[in-house]
Amino acid sequence: MSLSIIESCVNCWACLDVCPSEAIYEAKPHFMIDAKKCTECEGDHADPQCATICPIEGAILDAAGDEVNPAGSLTGIPPEMMERAMAEIQAR
């Protein structure tokens, strides 16, 4: 089983540095997780490290394909507030 990184990744390198299994590699357009190497940090840490340091909501999915850090969980911005702000900006 493995976590995965999706396109909202901003390539900040944070996950690569903390992965105990060297499963993360630099790639275009964004960093990737080698599913063969990823252990979900079992045996090393209580939480998968990439998802623990990742600053971008929704960028890392767990083995089941669910967002480990859903919208609002890291920034504290309620998703509806973010949507409203973005809609206002786009309407300008």
Binding site: V10, N11, C12, W13, A14, D17, I53, P55, I56, T75
Partner: peptide, 28 residues
């Protein structure tokens, strides 16, 4: 590029060539 905390005045997604403020870059 990596950070170990989140501050409420920072957005790690931002990259605009016309922006001038800390935390913003165009080319790593």
């Amino acid at each position: 590029p990596a950070c170990n905390i989140q501050c409420h005045y920072c957005n790690r997604k931002y990259d605009c060539a016309n922006e001038s403020r800390p935390g913003v870059v165009s080319e790593l």
